[in-house]
């Protein structure tokens, strides 16, 4: 009898697989995933893979009234450690006897993870389906599939912890169903007692911090720059002028999103004597395209196929006065 019940359960499971989700449902779920990653306390080890390269990292993450605190320590290769407190990050490179404190750009502060309008476009661009259940790192997870509706984006597969909605694993998949980039917890403990001592840097520091307050970006502007031939499903979510280290002039930064990934366009004046550049590069799921436009250098970066960054880069035009 027991095995009959088990069989029925199995077939039910199979029936649940690839059930399309209503737009509203999937949007809610993605919201919860973003929330969980920042609002939960957890500690564990995850692997990050892109192309043929895999590496493991230990993570401690505490969320309390004062915000997010975290420590990441690399387990492969040279030891490195990152301590996060709110929007401040400290990088430790003990082998190099150095450390750097960096504050994230102000542009990000208060920027909601997923804007409602971004999420609304999601269902226009992806078929969202439930993909069944799987046990991962000791936890039960629901699988969420985001199948792209065209060639301008990759597919996504998300493993979401059943009780807390913490993302336990995520993969980006090409149109040939090849995994381009993925991360996965190999062990994790969600919630429970947390020893704050685990948030302290363990690598010996031999030098005081080298401060690197990145100049605040975030001057929201109407730059006059536009993307004429925007790939379907992408909408502009940010436009600003910001300063970067080593550049004496401001750079225009436009951001477009299809609800799940973003593409950034950076536009800067060509410096006297500088050679205009043109080319494509890829790292894992991130494609990059540089292209000159008139007296400006355009750089496009996004977690999309090459065609997307290329089409955007090729149609950047100035329409201001």
């Amino acid at each position: 009898m027991r095995s009959v019940v088990f069989l029925i359960c199995l077939s039910l499971n199979a029936a649940v697989a690839a059930t399309p989700l209503q737009a509203q449902e999937s949007i809610q779920l993605l919201r919860k995933i973003s929330f969980a990653a920042h609002q939960l306390t957890y500690q564990g080890t995850f692997i990050f893979q892109r192309d043929a390269q895999i590496e493991s990292t230990r993570i401690y993450h505490l969320a309390d009234q004062s915000g997010e605190h975290g420590r990441l320590i690399s387990l492969d290769g040279p030891a490195r450690e990152i301590i996060c407190n709110g929007d401040e990050m400290q990088f430790y490179y003990p082998d190099a006897r150095s450390m750097m404190v960096e504050r994230q750009a102000v542009a990000r502060r208060g920027f909601p993870a997923l804007l409602p309008e971004q999420l609304q476009t999601l269902s226009d661009n992806y078929q969202v389906e439930e993909g069944g259940q799987e046990r991962l790192a000791g936890y039960d997870s629901h699988i969420l599939l985001l199948n792209p509706k065209d060639g301008y984006r990759y597919g996504h597969k998300l493993w979401v912890e059943a009780a807390t909605n913490l993302l336990l694993k995520a993969a980006m998949v090409s149109d040939e169903n090849r995994v381009i980039e993925q991360f996965a917890f190999t062990s994790i403990r969600i919630g429970g007692a947390f020893d704050r001592a685990l948030l302290r840097a363990t690598l010996p520091v031999k030098a005081p911090p080298l401060h690197n307050d990145r100049p605040a970006g975030g001057d929201v502007i109407q730059s006059g720059w536009e993307v004429d031939n925007l790939p379907s499903g992408f909408g502009k979510i940010a436009e600003m002028r910001r300063m970067f280290r080593g550049k004496a002039y401001p750079v225009t930064h436009l951001v477009y999103s299809d609800g799940i990934v973003a593409v950034s366009v950076f536009i800067e004046p060509l410096q006297p004597g500088a050679r205009p550049m043109s080319g494509v590069a890829r790292q894992g799921a991130v494609n990059l395209y540089v292209h000159p436009e008139n007296q400006y250098q355009v750089t496009v970066v996004g977690e999309t196929p090459e065609i997307t960054v290329r089409q955007i880069g090729d149609s950047v035009v100035y329409k201001g006065k």
């Binding site: 993605l30 995933i33 973003s34 990653a37 920042h38 995850f46 990050f48 892109r50 590496e55 990292t57 993570i59 993450h61 997010e68 975290g70 990441l72 690399s74 492969d76 290769g77 040279p78 490195r80 990152i82 996060c84 990050m89 990088f91 490179y93 994230q104 750009a105 542009a107 990000r108 920027f111 993870a113 997923l114 971004q118 996504h156 998300l158 913490l166 993302l167 995520a170 991360f183 990145r214 970006g217 979510i237 940010a238 910001r242 970067f244 280290r245 930064h253 951001v255 999103s257 609800g259 799940i260 990934v261 973003a262 950034s264 950076f266 991130v286 990059l288 750089t299 970066v301 977690e303």
Partner: peptide, 29 residues
């Protein structure tokens, strides 16, 4: 491009869903 990639990541909805700074620690590697 180093700074551009970091600046970009601040706005990626997908990065927001992952535990903090996965890509960052990886890239410092």
């Amino acid at each position: 491009l180093n700074d551009y990639l970091l600046a970009h990541q601040e706005f990626s909805p997908r990065s927001e869903m992952m535990p903090s700074n996965i890509r960052t620690v990886s890239d410092t590697y």
